[in-house]
Design a protein around this nucleic acid. Structure first.
Length: 579
DNA sequence: GCCGTTTTCGGCCCGACTGTTTTCAGTCG
C-alpha cells in the first residue's frame, strides 16, 4: 500500500494551488475555496483521508464539495495532483516566493515575471538596483525602496511568528504607553493574541477615543518603534526593534464591541458571521451592525453576536470550526478557566534538573492555593538531568512524606517523569512505580522512529500497570523541533481503553497537546492533565498558557483531570482499580 | 470551487492605507 500523506502536507498543497491560481488571475472565490480548504485540513484533529474515505456523496466537511473532496483524496493517496503539476509548469518557480514578499501581490508579481523576466530573487534584486523596477506600470520609487529593504533584510532575518509568552512581554508596555494618549478611552489587544494562539504573527490593538489622530500620533512615536509601515487618521502599523509588528485601530466609543470583534478574528469566523448577518439583511463591519443606513449596535461584542441571534462566543473558539453551529444550537462548551484548576501534575525539583527544593515547591503550591502538586523528577535514563534511580526515588518519597506531615492544605503527590524507552518499556520497574501516587511517562529519545514504531512504543508503555499520564505527547518544541510522528487517534483511543490520561504541557515552548488533539481527547472521553512541567517555582505561573490552549481545544472543567479535588483525584489515579 | 426554505445560477465580507495616479488599483488584514 502506498503511504498516506498527512494533513499538513495536504494543506500545504492546497495553499500552493491557491497561490498559483492567484498568479494565474483565477476567480478569487475559487482561490478562496482552496485557502479555506487548506485551513480546514490543517486544523482537523483527524486525518482528512480518514474522514473523506469512501466515495460518499454527502458532503462531510463544510466548504469541501465533491470536487475538493476528490482532489484531497488524490493528494492523500499519491501526494500529487494533476492540477498542481500543471499550474507549476505554467508559473515561474520564483513567482510563489515573490507573492509572499510585502507589497507584492499577484498583479505586480506577474508584471515582474513577464516584463522583466525575473526568475530568481537575485535577479529581482539586481533589477531593483538597476532602476528597472520603478519604470514598470504599478511600481514607482516608493515600492522600489521597500523592495530593496526587504530583499536586503530578508536573507538575514526571516520573519517568524512569536510564541505567545514572548509576545506578552511586549504587549503590556505598549498598552501602558498608549493609555497616556490624549482623549483615549479603551485600549485592548485583539487578534490571534486574544484568541490565545500558540504563536502570533503580529499584535492587533483596538483603542477608542473621540479623535483618532492624537492616539495615532503617540503610537507612531513609541520609542521602541524601529519603523512606521503605515499611518492614517484611524489606523497605523509599526514594527518594533524586536521585529514584532503592531497594528493599531482607533474607533469611536460606540464602535468598541464591533471593532474588538472584527479585529479578534479569526478571518474565517468573521466571514461566517457576516454571512449570517447578510442573510438577515445586516451589514457587520468594524464600526457596528447596520440595516441599510440604520445602526443597530456595536458598543459591545454581545450586541454583534446578538444581532445574528447568537450568544457570546469566547475568542479562543472563533476559528469557524463548529463554534457558530454550536452557538446556534445552544451547545457551546463552558470553557475551563484557570481558577478551575486545583493543582499541577508535572513539576521538577532540584533533585534532578529543577531549580527549587521540595520545600520551595510546596510553599509555592500553597501560595497558588493548590490542593496538590505532583513532583515528577526525571528517571535514571536522563543522565544529563541526574535522573533518579530507585534508591534516590525512595529518598525523595520519604522527604515528601515529611513535608506533607506539616504542610496542611496542600499535598505533594509522589510521582516521576519516567522515560519511555525505545522498546516501549519504562525506565523503572513496576514494583517501584507502584509505590507512587501517579506515574507521568514521556518520550525523550529516538524521536525519528517511523509513525508506526513510535505509536506502538507509546501504546506498549501504556500497557504497564502503573502508567498514568502521557506527558508532552508529541515532543514538539514550537518553532524549534517538529513533533515526532505518532498516530494521536490510536494513542487517545488506547488511553481511553486503558484508563490513562493525556497531558497538555503548558510550557510556552511546548503547548503540547495541540488544540485539535485536545478536542479529540474530549470527544473520546479521555481526561487531559494541564500541567506546567515547571523547573522552578515561578514557572507554575505558566499554567495560564495551557489553559488558553485547552480552551482553544474546547475543553471544559469536567474534561480536565486536575480540576478535581484531591479526594476526587485519588480514585482516578488508582488505575489498576478501574480495569 | 461552494452553496441553496427567496436561488441549481449567481452570488460569495469589507474597509483603510499607499502609491501611483489624475480617479483608482493593489495590497493588506
Amino acid at each position: 500500500m502506498a503511504e498516506t500523506r498527512h494533513n499538513p502536507e495536504i494543506a500545504q498543497s492546497l495553499d500552493d494551488i491557491a497561490d498559483l491560481l492567484e498568479l494565474d488571475d483565477a476567480n478569487p472565490f475559487r482561490i478562496r475555496a482552496y485557502r479555506n480548504a487548506a485551513r480546514l485540513v490543517r486544523g482537523l484533529g483527524k486525518e482528512v483521508s480518514e474522514i473523506l474515505t469512501t466515495e460518499d456523496t454527502a458532503p462531510k466537511l463544510p466548504g469541501i464539495g465533491a470536487d475538493l473532496a476528490d482532489k484531497i483524496r488524490t493528494l492523500a493517496r499519491t501526494g500529487h495532483l494533476p492540477l498542481l503539476d500543471q499550474l507549476r509548469k505554467k508559473t515561474p518557480h520564483v513567482a510563489q516566493e515573490l507573492l509572499h514578499l510585502p507589497n507584492l501581490g499577484p498583479k505586480r508579481v506577474r508584471t515582474l515575471c513577464d516584463e522583466l523576466g525575473v526568475r530568481t530573487l537575485e535577479q529581482l534584486h539586481r533589477a531593483v538596483l538597476d532602476g528597472r523596477v520603478r519604470e514598470l506600470p504599478g511600481f514607482g520609487a516608493g515600492i522600489e525602496k521597500k523592495l530593496r529593504e526587504v530583499l536586503e533584510a530578508g536573507a538575514k532575518a526571516p520573519p517568524s511568528r512569536l510564541k505567545l509568552a514572548l509576545a506578552e512581554s511586549y504587549v503590556d508596555p505598549i498598552l501602558t504607553y498608549l493609555r497616556g494618549a490624549p482623549g483615549i478611552d479603551q485600549v485592548v489587544v485583539a487578534g490571534s493574541y486574544r484568541r490565545c494562539q500558540e504563536t502570533v504573527g503580529d499584535i492587533d490593538i483596538v483603542a477608542t477615543a473621540e479623535r483618532g489622530q492624537p492616539v495615532i500620533d503617540r503610537f507612531v512615536a513609541y520609542d521602541e518603534a524601529a519603523k512606521v509601515l503605515a499611518s492614517g487618521s484611524t489606523r497605523a502599523t509599526i514594527v518594533l526593534r524586536s521585529g514584532l509588528q503592531i497594528d493599531l485601530r482607533v474607533v469611536p466609543k460606540e464602535s468598541y464591541g464591533a471593532a474588538l470583534y472584527y479585529f479578534t478574528g479569526s478571518k474565517a469566523h468573521n466571514i461566517a458571521i457576516r454571512k449570517l448577518g447578510l442573510e438577515r439583511g445586516l451589514k457587520i463591519n468594524e464600526y457596528g451592525v447596520f440595516r441599510r443606513r440604520k445602526r443597530l449596535g456595536g458598543k459591545t461584542e454581545d450586541e454583534v453576536f446578538g444581532a445574528v441571534g447568537l450568544p457570546f462566543i469566547p475568542p479562543e473558539l472563533r476559528e469557524n470550526r463548529g463554534e457558530i453551529e454550536a452557538a446556534a444550537a445552544g451547545t457551546l462548551p463552558k470553557l475551563v478557566e484557570l481558577a478551575d484548576l486545583r493543582g499541577d501534575l508535572h513539576v521538577h525539583s532540584k533533585a534532578t534538573d529543577g531549580h527549587d527544593s521540595l520545600e520551595e515547591l510546596a510553599q509555592a503550591a500553597r501560595e497558588h492555593g493548590y490542593d496538590y502538586l505532583a513532583v515528577t523528577d526525571h528517571s535514571r535514563r536522563i543522565a544529563m538531568a541526574h535522573g533518579l534511580d530507585p534508591h534516590r526515588l525512595m529518598q525523595e518519597m520519604r522527604a515528601i512524606d515529611r513535608i506533607n506531615e506539616k504542610l496542611g492544605e496542600t499535598t505533594l503527590l509522589k510521582s516521576i517523569e519516567v522515560d519511555i524507552l525505545e522498546d516501549g518499556t519504562l525506565d523503572l520497574p513496576d514494583g517501584v512505580l507502584g509505590e507512587l501516587d501517579l506515574v507521568v511517562a514521556a518520550v525523550h529519545s529516538k524521536f525519528d522512529l517511523s509513525r508506526q514504531k513510535q505509536t506502538d512504543r507509546i501504546l506498549r508503555a501504556m500497557e504497564r500497570p502503573h502508567f498514568t499520564i502521557l506527558a508532552h505527547p508529541t515532543g514538539r518544541l514550537i518553532g524549534e523541533r517538529a513533533p515526532y510522528d505518532v498516530d494521536m487517534g490510536r494513542i487517545i483511543a488506547a488511553a481511553k481503553n486503558r484508563g490513562c490520561y493525556i497531558e497538555l504541557n503548558a510550557h510556552p515552548d511546548r503547548l503540547d497537546l495541540i488544540d485539535s488533539h485536545c478536542r479529540m481527547a474530549k470527544e473520546a472521553g479521555v481526561l487531559v492533565s494541564i500541567a506546567t512541567d515547571a523547573h522552578r517555582a515561578q514557572e507554575l505561573n505558566n499554567l495560564r498558557f495551557g489553559v488558553g490552549q485547552g480552551r482553544r481545544g474546547w475543553l471544559e472543567k469536567g474534561d480536565v483531570l486536575n480540576t478535581r479535588t484531591l479526594a476526587q483525584l485519588r480514585p482516578l489515579l488508582a488505575r489498576t482499580m478501574r480495569r
